[in-house]
């Protein structure tokens, strides 16, 4: 474990807790894309299948349980909670996210490190995570102004992946044979997707005005 990875995990944890807190306290999910949340639930479900077969540390297992629990709770709130589900803007959140799942699955069947069931699903989860934010970014563009909790959620999510890139550089420099192109490229693509959001987020923060994404 290194400081970059710990910072990344904590930022990731903060992003899901910020979102869960928002939805739980104000009983609203306005501005949140259910599609992105569903994709994230699939990402964690396919990534953490090894939770039963291999144990690394209490920390590792605990965090997996938290991520699984929080992502499925958010989906549950947005789909079934009587108050929250009414605040979900279904008309705007129309990204056909299933069009993201299939190509990621095909790609994982083609490019992976080992052709085993767990490995292919794990690789699928990496590819899917890289694009999972797209429905949320599209929704933010459509709804124009961003309420600051949703903005913080996307910002923290981008920051977590940014810290992970620093973690991979650190591990590459300090651990011999630590080379994982698939993880690195998927993580880099994901972080780049956030780049323009970060640009507008900082612009709004610097000029101290509401965050407006260009149409």
């Amino acid at each position: 474990m290194n400081i970059f990875r710990l910072a990344g995990d904590m930022t990731h944890l903060a992003s899901v807790l910020v979102l869960l807190l928002k939805i739980h306290t104000i009983k609203s999910c306005a501005g949140v894309s259910l599609k992105t949340q569903e994709l994230y639930a699939i990402v964690f479900a396919t990534r953490y299948l090894d939770i039963f077969t291999s144990f690394y540390s209490i920390y590792n297992t605990l965090m997996k349980l938290i991520f699984l629990g929080s992502s499925f709770s958010i989906v549950w709130y947005m789909r079934y909670h009587k108050t929250v589900r009414r605040t979900y803007d279904r008309e705007q959140d129309t990204f056909r996210h299933w069009f993201l799942v299939l190509p990621c699955l095909l790609l994982a069947l083609l490019i992976h490190e080992k052709f085993t069931f767990l490995e292919v699903l794990w690789t699928f989860s990496l590819y899917l995570e890289a694009v999972a934010i797209l429905p949320q970014l599209v929704l933010l563009q459509r709804t124009r102004n961003i309420d600051n909790l949703t903005g913080q959620y996307v910002f923290l999510l981008g920051g977590y992946r940014g810290f992970y890139i620093l973690n991979w550089i650190y591990r590459y420099l300090t651990e011999p044979h630590f080379v994982h192109w698939i993880t690195w490229i998927a993580g880099l693509v994901q972080t780049l997707l956030y780049a323009d959001f970060f640009y507008y987020y900082f612009q709004s923060w610097k000029n101290n005005k509401k965050l407006q994404l260009p149409a």
Binding site: H12, S54, F67
Partner: peptide, 10 residues
């Protein structure tokens, strides 16, 4: 347990 270090990350 297969502690291949690729999977120690979240």
């Amino acid at each position: 347990n297969n502690n291949d270090l690729t999977k120690d990350e979240l």
